[in-house]
Design a binder for these strands. Structure first.
Lengths: 105, 105
DNA sequence: GCCCATATGTTGTCACACCACATATGGCCA
DNA sequence: TGGCCATATGTGGTGTGACAACATATGGGC
């Protein structure tokens, strides 16, 4: 599934609070009930890009007897982009539905 | 808008009958009420790919005082792929909605 | 001792969306 | 007459982004 939705999904997950990468992936898979699964090769590079653009902020957290984790939180800019993305995707879905007649309900 | 939806959209338009490339693009823009617009650099290469995969079939139609047009029709294979695509996109949308909470209705 | 779940990452490849450009015809308007 | 717009088809080059495969590291269960 290559649809360019990673940005929207990650930002939406982080809206609920701080999460580390692996957790973000699990949340997306869980919340979508398996419909959308994330691959590491998409996930981590996308997290760096989002951080580079200032939409999310990460910090390393180390605990004894655990691999280090990088926790991300949504920035103010990130929240703005999330709102814009939501709106764009909503419009896109409506358009697709009109053209391809997906939804019966 | 780069979302990989071209295949679904084109097949859905051709489901209604024969159309030439430019007409397909106009139909998509019209039916989506401007939400989705197609660019020639995506449209024609995609039509060739679909034809190469046997999902659509094209034939040249020449009329005096008109530029030649290539009309495409949906093949049986194409109809099958369209059904599969519809199902996939439906699932994808449901997943996105669950994760990103787009739809209130 | 091995595999699995957790957790993070890189390299290389491929599909595809788009910008810019190109060609060709007819109609409208100044 | 000349230019622009709509129609209609196409190409070359660029960039993004999704994924396969591989790599590293820790703890727990069998």
């Amino acid at each position: 599934m290559k649809k360019g939705s990673a940005e929207l999904l990650i930002l939406a997950i982080l809206e609920d609070g701080q999460r580390h990468g692996y957790e973000v992936a699990r949340q997306i898979e869980r919340r979508s009930r398996g419909a959308i699964s994330f691959h590491v090769a998409s996930l981590y590079p996308m997290l760096y890009r989002l951080e580079g653009r200032g939409l999310i902020e990460g910090r390393w957290v180390e605990k004894a007897g655990q691999r280090r984790r990088r926790y991300y939180r949504l920035t103010t800019d990130g929240a703005g982009v999330l709102a814009a993305q939501r709106s764009l995707w909503q419009e896109f879905f409506t358009g697709i539905n009109r053209v391809a007649r997906l939804r019966n309900a």
